[in-house]
């Protein structure tokens, strides 16, 4: 796995984009401000506390969450390669148990999630310290719980990608299904929960797998348009997403246990 070139390329690209995107938001703001000035109006970048503690936690983590698709494609390749090259079969023949195999893949997912968290923590601390005008310790800590939600968000999504790979076994198809899953889930929700139909079961929405992963870190930017947002991590969301993450991996194991490989 570690010598597979695609792995390193994707890994490198992922962390590069993640780093650049999250770290350069301020520069983008400044650029927008300069454009505003060209038109004779002014925009005070410090009025939008994108990179100020404590806002920075949720802001950057939300943005980073969007990049998890890249990471999940890598997970899909890693699992479908095992089928394509039949190395999974040889590993089992060599004396690996099927549980050990699933665990090795899940552990890789944990590691990738942890690396993302570490990377983001570094960026947040550095950019936060640079851009926050007045530092107070309490503000720095507030919002750090989003890191935990972020970890779970990545891990649950990678577990989902792993499960798709185990069930579909072909990389191209798996990646397409992975990319369309949000849309498919949205369509199902739309059809099930048309307000006019059953207003009483709207609360069920949060139990959908991908919705539950998205709910971990809610969209923060509406607050700069003076709207109320959820600026805390909901325990319910954590519990639901955690359950799904467990189920995804358990389904992978069940499928693998029963399959002839």
């Amino acid at each position: 796995m570690t010598s597979y070139r695609t792995f390193w390329v994707i890994c490198g690209l992922y962390f590069l984009t993640l780093g650049f995107t999250t770290a350069s938001g301020m520069e983008i703001l400044k650029w927008i401000a300069s454009k505003f000035e060209d038109f004779g109006s002014s925009l005070n970048v410090n009025r939008i506390p994108l990179y100020h503690f404590p806002d920075i936690w949720q802001n950057l983590i939300y943005i980073s969450g969007l990049f998890k698709l890249v990471l999940s494609v890598m997970v899909v390749i890693s699992i479908t390669n095992e089928y394509q090259y039949r190395t999974l079969r040889q590993n089992i023949i060599d004396g690996m148990s099927r549980l050990e195999f699933v665990l090795s893949k899940v552990l890789t997912n944990v590691l990738l999630s942890l690396m993302s968290v570490a990377m983001l923590l570094l960026i947040i601390i550095v950019t936060g310290l640079i851009y926050t005008p007045d530092l107070a310790f309490a503000d720095v800590i507030t919002g750090a719980e989003f890191l935990l939600a972020y970890f779970l968000e990545i891990f649950a999504f990678l577990s989902y990608a792993l499960m798709l790979g185990v069930f579909i076994q072909r990389s191209g198809l798996t990646i397409v299904v992975l990319m369309l899953s949000h849309m498919i889930e949205a369509i199902i929700k739309l059809n099930l929960f048309r307000e006019s139909l059953n207003p009483s079961i709207g609360w069920l929405k949060q139990f959908f797998p991908l919705e539950s992963i998205t709910n971990l870190v809610p969209l923060p930017f509406a607050r700069y348009a003076f709207q109320e947002i959820q600026d805390y991590v909901s325990i319910t969301a954590i519990v639901i997403a955690l359950t799904w993450a467990f189920l995804f991996n358990y389904f992978s194991y069940l499928k693998l246990k029963k399959a002839d490989i």
Partner: peptide, 13 residues
């Protein structure tokens, strides 16, 4: 047990 079933299987890269 040492076993090779069908064709050899290794990580090509």
């Amino acid at each position: 047990i040492g076993a090779v079933l069908e064709h050899p299987i290794f990580y090509p890269y």
